[in-house]
Design a binder for these strands. Structure first.
Length: 1048
RNA sequence: GGGCGGUUAGCUCAGUUGGCUAGAGCGCCACGUUGACAUCGUGGAGGUCGUUGGUUCAAGCCCAAUACCGCCCACCA
């Protein structure tokens, strides 16, 4: 640019913000400038956020957009406030999820399973996948404007995290807080791994309820020939090792009855009926079933046996409290290896546990002739065989809640396996204390209950996964045959290898089968010796492997490494400067579904490893749902891609939209629309059309494809974007800001910086400064308290309704006046500067762009002190304006001007006057108000095309007129030659009605002695004042009405 | 079964510790476009705050009951 006059610069500013090119350019400007970098700086206070690491399974969705927008808003705010702000980025290896995705692709594309590849090859393949998706995720975060310190980017499986994982594992192992045990696990037969309870969801499916008859072995006279048991999974009967009956059926029924009666006494009407029905059922059962159950109980006590059909095995009838006498036949078949409750029963009664399932979901040798059959066929076969033996008493149709794996979406089979656990009692307690003591504060507070309830169960955490993708458990194990071998092996390890020092530890796990005979019969070892090694590639590994130890194949649950995230990313276990300075982190921003899985575990691991909680505060943000209140997901087709929103509306609009929606409630609804790629029409998404591969646009009748497009024909169609109109608000806001700034900069031609003298400030200047200062304070406290929606709303209203609609409009006049221009320019540059700072954390791109343009036109600016503007807004200071500028008196004076203006505009609209039709008016008011309004006269002209012909207590009232009455001010618009009397009369009468009602309610209040006696004095006087004002206005109005009537 | 949210204008949502006439955006209606912005401007219509009862001088807000919608946890041989 040869001559950089402000006007020329401004002329080059397009009327619309070109966000696409600006986003790229500005992001590079920030990144290359090193503004995202955070380093230890003891002159500053640290502010740290660790990103909830997104899974490397795929792309970011709208939930991520929300989560990361909020984090970036806080980080940018704190950076501007002068904190050393660190936002630690990274991704999560997401064990099961990622391996599942890659395996599925391997199957689809090459028809191979992981076993065809082998562990090493598969892991290598997943690393490639990870690189690709990590890059994609990071580029998405960058496109959103996230100001992470990218040089620190971590991955939960990188060397730094691996080191932290091994140290943690070793520490817990050494303390005896990690152990191996045989447990029923949720077996995913598709992925062939155990999944935790948290990775299981229930789905209601249609199923059957089979009632099976087990013959009693040599029944005595009077005894039944069969015992009936019911099951939804008949094939599991092959692994039955007992049938149980309640030891005290009568007592149990009594208790149930007592409970029901207890509840009946406090029940609501609705419950009442259902309780009565239940009571009746218990009574029935007492009559019909009790004798039978007692008989079975006696048989069980006598040690009677049953014959397990098909397997021809004798199994005992036992007494246990698990079967509920009020349900079914009152008897339960016990399948210890395949049902969690039965497992507990088996432990109590030392029953044999027969696992009939292979890892791939087919039956194993324990299933006798059914071995090799997949579960489904086994079920059919078992039922058919039992039917042919007439051993099926009954089959019911029934809806069954079936557990499914969250990852593979296939049914879960309970399965007995060796697993590793973390003992939770102490650790949980420490994490509970951290929250109850206030060391960690959860916002909104209601979520502390979720957190505490879950932890208080103190259930041990199963941490092993039969996967290849993850941190392999650093344990080497060896079975020993007897106590001598055990002793000599332990001796060997401790003496010659000096294990049990700082870097390796031993655990001896005795065989879970206490019965020696059974143990030998089952071929189980005497004990297993486990050695955990702390450091990677420790030479000790080779040495113990030479002794016959084998490394545990399992990997750790992903959440194990995630739990270390706040300190592992800062260098723990080394006591780095970073760790010392940035830990504990300041706040964690996440969604509520991982409060237990992640937040709680981070707290307890942080306490265990660092002795300090990992963060001071946790903010839980809402979930985004579609217009039907359903969660968004790609599999439903209602997911909005944040990149589509960025492409269509810009990153700032995405961010503003997100912040604007972040209220205190649990969920946010976002109606979803397709956008026709041909005509840009917006088509409301319904449950039906969101499942279609192609949609015909109702506006232009052309077809477009959706994410479901599979056929070549559909794929050849252009794809319709999935968007929400809720981002339009934000886009429009950005546009408004852009154009107001464009106007401002255009009018900074000839700008000369100089301090603005107090005497030069007009009412509107004091007003905007008061508002700016107030808004700055409001926004700061709102953001401090995570009230993102309120902060955004305040900014939106201020920027649009006050800065644009009033201040800029008013300045138009002064900018056009040579005498006033210089001061007006200084004020305009200054207030825009202030506004941009306030908006920057939420909408960083557009504000930075305007900042740069503003600095071209007005490089030095200020109010009382002139200074060079900071070169980039991202590094500008947040607090500039003195709170002393806040002035309620000025604001209320300005409100009078606004009211008069609004009144004039309303009359114009009512009289249907074009914007250029001039009108004249007079104002009747006190001298004080006269002085106030006189200073604003020019603006009535410029903003309402209205000329004032007189103002004061004794002005001559023009006739005919239109009147606006307000407190202490009456405005009369001269309507000679213009008047639509009927319209004006209608308006006046409506106003009269409103005031009459107001007078009536206020009078009613004041006539009520209990109100005047009991309400606070302030409230009473407010009502008195309101009444007085209303009455005065009513008087003026009555006069105006009669005048108008007489004119007619 | 236990817990947690929600129900305010046609739609999506605000509404601080109870206190003047319950607000916004979108949509709708009317008018308006040679210089910041039609992604705009000005004005307007539109609400018995889910229902019932209670506390209070005063309830969208507090209490109790109830209906519906949603989420989480547990359990169902």
């Amino acid at each position: 640019m040869a001559s950089n006059t402000a006007h020329e610069i401004a002329r080059q500013i397009p009327t619309r913000f070109d966000f696409e090119s600006a986003q790229k350019r500005l992001y590079e400007l920030w990144q290359n400038g090193g503004y995202f970098r955070a380093t230890v700086n003891h002159d500053k206070q640290p502010f740290t956020i660790v990103i909830p690491p997104p899974n490397v399974t795929g792309a970011l969705h709208l939930g991520h957009a929300l989560n990361n927008t909020l984090q970036d808003i806080l980080v940018r705010l704190r950076r501007m406030q002068g904190f050393e702000a660190l936002w630690m980025p990274g991704t999560d290896h997401a064990g099961i999820a990622t391996q599942a995705v890659v395996e599925r692709r391997l199957k689809e594309e090459e028809g191979k399973t992981r076993h065809d590849l082998g562990r090493e090859k598969l892991v290598e393949l997943i690393w490639q996948w990870k690189d690709q998706y990590e890059a994609r995720i990071i580029s998405q975060l960058k496109r959103m404007g996230c100001s992470c310190d990218w040089e620190r980017t971590r991955f939960t499986l990188d060397d730094m995290c691996a080191r932290a994982v091994r140290h943690t594992f070793f520490d817990l192992f050494e303390k005896g807080l990690i152990y191996r045990g045989k447990r029923l696990v949720n077996w995913d037969t598709y992925l062939q791994t155990a999944v935790s309870d948290d990775e299981v969801f229930n789905e209601t499916v249609k199923g059957h309820f089979w009632h099976l008859k087990y013959p009693v072995v040599s029944p005595q006279p009077g005894e039944p020939e069969f015992v009936v048991v019911a099951t939804t999974r008949p094939e599991t009967m092959l692994g039955d090792t007992a049938v149980a009956v309640h030891p005290e059926p009568a007592k149990a029924l009594d208790k149930i009855q007592a409970d029901l009666e207890d509840r009946l006494s406090t029940a609501s009407k609705n419950e009442h009926a259902s309780l009565l029905i239940q009571l009746e059922a218990v009574n029935q059962r007492r009559i019909v079933m009790l004798p039978q159950l007692e008989q079975l109980r006696d048989m069980a006590r006598a040690g009677r046996m049953l014959k397990l059909p098909l397997m021809e095995r004798e199994i005992p009838l036992i007494c246990d409290e698990w079967p509920k006498p009020e349900l079914g036949s009152g008897c339960v078949k016990i399948t210890p290896a395949h049902d969690p409750n039965d497992y507990e029963v088996a432990l109590r009664h030392q029953l044999e546990m027969i696992n009939i399932l292979s890892p791939d979901g087919s039956l194993n040798v324990e299933a006798g002739s059914y071995a090799g059959l997949p579960l489904k066929s086994a079920r059919k076969q078992v039922v058919a065989d039992l039917e042919s033996l007439d051993l099926v008493a009954q089959v019911e149709e029934r809806e069954i809640e079936l557990p499914h794996s969250d990852r593979s979406k296939t049914p879960i089979e309970p399965f007995l396996a060796n697993q590793w656990f973390v003992k939770m009692d102490q650790l949980s307690q420490s994490a509970m204390d951290a929250v109850t003591d206030g060391a960690v504060r959860i916002v909104p507070q209601r979520y502390t209950k979720t957190y505490l309830d879950w932890l208080s169960e103190k259930r041990d955490w199963p941490v092993s996964r039969q996967l290849w993708w993850g941190h392999q458990i650093p344990v080497w194990s060896k079975a020993v045959a007897d106590t001598q071998e055990q002793a000599s092996m332990v001796k060997e390890l401790t003496q010659s290898l000096k294990i049990n020092g700082t870097s390796a530890a031993i655990q001896v796990e005795p065989c879970e089968e206490a019965n020696e005979q059974k143990r030998v019969k089952l071929g189980l070892p005497w004990a297993t010796i486990h050695v955990a090694i702390c450091n990677q590639d420790d030479p000790l590994e080779k040495l113990i492997e030479a002794l016959g130890f084998e490394r545990v194949e399992d990997v750790l649950d992903t959440w194990f490494s995630s739990a270390l995230w706040p300190h592992s990313t800062l260098g723990w276990p080394s006591l780095t400067e970073d760790l010392e300075y940035f830990y504990p982190t300041s706040t964690l921003i996440t969604s509520r579904d991982i409060i237990t899985l992640w937040v709680a575990r981070m707290v307890l691991m942080g306490l265990n490893n660092c002795g300090q909680t990992p963060f001071d505060e946790v903010y839980i943000h809402p979930k985004i749902l579609d217009g039907y209140g359903e969660t968004m997901s790609k599999s439903k087709g209602n997911g909005i891609d944040p990149l589509d929103v960025i492409d269509k509306f810009g990153a700032d609009a995405l961010r503003f939209g997100m912040a604007y929606l972040t209220t205190e409630t649990q969920d946010v609804r976002m109606p979803v629309q397709f956008e026709c790629p041909h005509c840009e029409a917006s088509i409301e998404q319904t449950r039906k059309n969101r499942e279609l591969p192609r949609i015909s646009c109702p506006k232009c009748s052309q077809m477009f494809a959706t994410q479901w497009a599979k056929s070549d024909e559909d794929l050849s169609l252009p794809r319709g974007l999935v968007l929400s109109e809720r981002f339009e608000v934000a886009r429009n806001f950005c546009n408004k800001l852009w154009n107001a700034s464009r106007f401002s900069i255009m009018h900074l031609e000839g700008f000369k910086p100089a301090p603005v003298l107090d005497s030069n400030l007009r009412l509107e200047d004091r007003w905007i400064l008061s508002r700016l200062s107030t808004v700055q304070q409001l926004v700061t406290t709102d953001l401090d308290k995570y009230r993102f929606a309120e902060a955004s709303r305040t900014l939106y209203d201020f920027a649009w309704d006050e800065f644009c609609s009033f201040y800029v409009e008013i300045l138009k006049d002064r900018l056009g006046d040579e005498k006033q221009r210089a001061v007006a320019q200084r004020l305009l540059a200054f207030s825009l500067d202030q506004l941009l700072r306030l908006l920057h954390p939420v909408i960083p791109f557009i504000t930075e762009e305007i900042w740069q343009l503003l600095s071209h036109a007005a490089p030095q600016r200020g109010l009382d002190q002139i200074a060079e503007a900071e070169p980039v807004l991202i590094a500008a200071h947040w607090n500039v304006l003195d709170p002393d500028w806040q002035n309620p008196e000025i604001e209320s004076q300005f409100a009078k001007f606004q009211n008069v203006l609004a009144g004039l505009r309303e009359i114009r609209a009512r009289q249907n006057l074009g914007p250029k039709t001039p009108v004249e008016f007079v104002v009747r008011c006190s001298d004080q108000n006269r002085r106030l309004l006189e200073s604003m006269m020019a603006y009535f002209e410029s903003m309402a095309c209205a000329t004032c012909k007189g103002v004061g207590p004794d002005v001559a009232i023009p006739m005919p007129n239109a009147t606006i009455t307000m407190s202490e001010i009456d405005v009369f618009v001269n309507l000679t030659g213009l008047i639509d009397i009927a319209a004006e009369m209608k308006r006046l009468e409506k106003e009269q009605q409103r005031l009459t009602n107001l007078v009536a309610t206020n009078q009613g209040k004041l006539n009520n002695p209990s109100f005047t006696d009991r309400a606070p004095e302030q409230v009473v006087s407010q009502v008195r004042q309101s009444l007085q004002e209303a009455e005065e206005q009513l008087t003026s109005l009555a006069r105006a009405i009669s005048d108008l009537a007489s004119f007619e």
